[in-house]
Design a protein around this nucleic acid. Structure first.
Lengths: 347, 347
DNA sequence: TTACAATGCACTATCGATTGTGCAAAATGA
DNA sequence: TCATTTTGCACAATCGATAGTGCATTGTAA
């Protein structure tokens, strides 16, 4: 046998069967082709001895499928997205598919290039998470007749699976209200909403949930309490700093939108004595186990990354293509708690 | 044109050129084939209009290459590995390759399956990080004549790129010694080494570095101070708890081996008043920005994930196959510091 | 024994791109 | 003008697996 991996032709020569028969045996279609069990066993044995494995490029070329599923994330190096990746990967493998995850750094050119690459490799489907230009990508996929599902992102030309941001924000706000000093509540001091971008879907929904919870608790949501200063820690740090100096104290109620914003908040808080937090209730719409170890309690909302991916695969398996938004509720994490259900962080 | 993506045959018909010419034009080999610039422009234009993109399965089949590079990690959902993934991904794309990252949950069966899948897809090279059975994987790759490089893992049949664990541990220990109360140093209380597995290469090297630093500082390394209680937080928590009650205090010097072990440590520490740490110096061989926000200072060692991957690609580009271990120094992070150089964590 | 169905497998075209080879037409030189 | 070289491209085989089709051989029924 020539160097390199053995092919069905090699196995055919060794077994005396024809290549097409070998193919049928090795891909499991032999009952339909009425191949005798005896031959099947013989061929299988030889294939195993030779260390045969099917060439997926050849199969993919012939079948116009590849067995690959792609996912686009902005970055790997992030708790939420890496958790999505983890589940995406595991559930792809369960289905006998090979996951391909690419990060695009929220760069729309890179996003386009990645989708084009996926198309070139004939991936069977794409999950799109955290894209900066989802419409562009949707259009590309549609043009290539490629199934795609948006994750935690509202899509227009395909199904999307998103966190119930309204619900999470509503429940988080409720918790913050309950944990605030009574005096602050009765004085109507309100809760500050910090971080995120007013133009993105998630933040918009969260603000609505926050406002609804305040309203239902008999408090008014004050427009000037909402400070969507972006996702960059430095910006949040600055906003937090000026807010504290303006109030002369840490706000009695604080809703931090996203963990990176929280990092910024912390880089200011770390300069304060721990008594500074005695009259504050703090919540964060995002989860990191380390927040359980801070000097003050933090309520957190954890997106159900498993639920998001599971729902997406469900839609994929069902062949769903209707442009419907499916909603998955997030989980509220009590202070000082390490969330379970995440795959162990095995160092 | 038939439904589905256009092929070189479609472009050939539309342009009046032959498929082989179209192929040469579109893959850039046309100068060697003496295709006229005029034809090149015409074909290129038509291809662009038709939204042509080359079918990588067909190309890969013909060329016996795929343009894919694989990487194996135990999990995506981890700071270190996701950081590796991030760089692996970016640098693959820089080279015009398509990165495929699979997680195996440290399960050696899964590892084998993934490598076999990669072989089936004719990936051009594999990076192996954090495998539980590297030898098995090396053997598989060798048999398939597949270039592979071990990352942060000593390999026997291929190049490997590993963190300089000795150096990192040495420098971390030095810092801990310098930060310990003088009285503790002069009493020879020593430094406790907690977490990790005595049987793995990294821990072994770290213990050597720790011992060397102690020795060079005129302190003896006490065998009973070394407690490699694994990577599971719960185990470390338990070990930390019993150690504290045995000593009647937090140890004056503590070297925590890995961040997950540190999580365990923290889950005990969070039960103590912050004054309990006044006479302790604590270090962790791993990095998490959140440790900058704890009540007490923590020295950390951050593996240079960019350096590891960069070196690995360098070896790959150079076609290096010698089974040599290449060492990359980690970075010491001062307390209360957020490391830079990592790709922004854009929430 | 004859007719016919079922069984078991081989043949061959095909997927889309690449590449070695061959052959006109144009360009060059004598 | 004729012989050569160069230019510019088409042809056909090939990568490995799949799937439609056809043809012996064996088995069954009448």
């Amino acid at each position: 046998m020539a160097p390199g991996k053995p092919t069905i032709y090699d196995i055919a020569l060794l077994s005396g069967a024809s290549p097409s028969t070998v193919s049928a045996v090795l891909n499991g279609s032999w009952p339909r082709r009425r191949i005798s069990k005896k031959l099947v066993d013989a061929v299988t044995l030889i294939a195993a001895e030779q260390g045969y494995s099917t060439n997926m490029q050849a199969r993919g070329l012939r079948q116009a499928r590849s067995g690959l599923v792609g996912m686009i994330v902005p970055l790997h190096d992030n708790r939420f997205f890496s958790s999505l990746s983890q589940h995406f990967d595991a559930m792809a493998r369960e289905r006998g598919l090979c996951p391909v995850i690419a990060s695009t750094l929220r760069n729309s050119d890179e996003e386009r290039r990645v989708v084009e690459t996926f198309i070139s490799y004939s991936v069977d489907a794409i999950f799109i998470a955290g894209a900066s230009d989802p419409e562009q990508l949707g259009a590309l996929c549609t043009a290539a007749n490629l199934k795609h599902i948006f994750i935690d992102l509202p899509g227009h030309d395909a199904p999307s699976v998103v966190t119930d941001n309204f619900d999470g924000a509503y429940r988080l706000t409720q918790k913050i209200i309950a944990a605030m000093p009574q005096s602050a509540v009765s004085h109507g001091e309100g809760i500050y909403f910090l971080g995120g971008s007013g133009s993105d879907h998630a933040t918009t929904q969260r603000i609505k949930g926050y406002e609804a919870a305040l309203g239902d608790a008999g408090q008014r949501a004050l427009k000037d309490h909402i400070i969507p200063c972006g996702y960059v820690p430095a910006k949040t740090a600055q906003a937090m700093c000026s807010l504290c100096s303006q109030l002369g104290a840490v706000p009695s109620g604080l809703f931090v939108n996203s963990f990176t914003a929280f990092e910024g908040v912390m880089s200011h808080f770390v300069t304060l004595p721990s008594s500074a937090f005695d009259n504050s209730a703090i919540g964060c719409f995002d989860y990191d186990p380390f927040a359980a170890f801070l000097q003050f309690p933090v309520y957190m909302v954890r997106q159900d990354s498993h639920g998001l991916i599971a729902k997406a695969y469900e839609l994929l398996d069902a062949g769903e293509t209707a442009s419907i938004m499916h909603v998955v509720k997030p989980q509220l994490i009590e202070p000082r708690t390490i969330a379970e259900g995440s795959i162990a962080n095995l160092g």
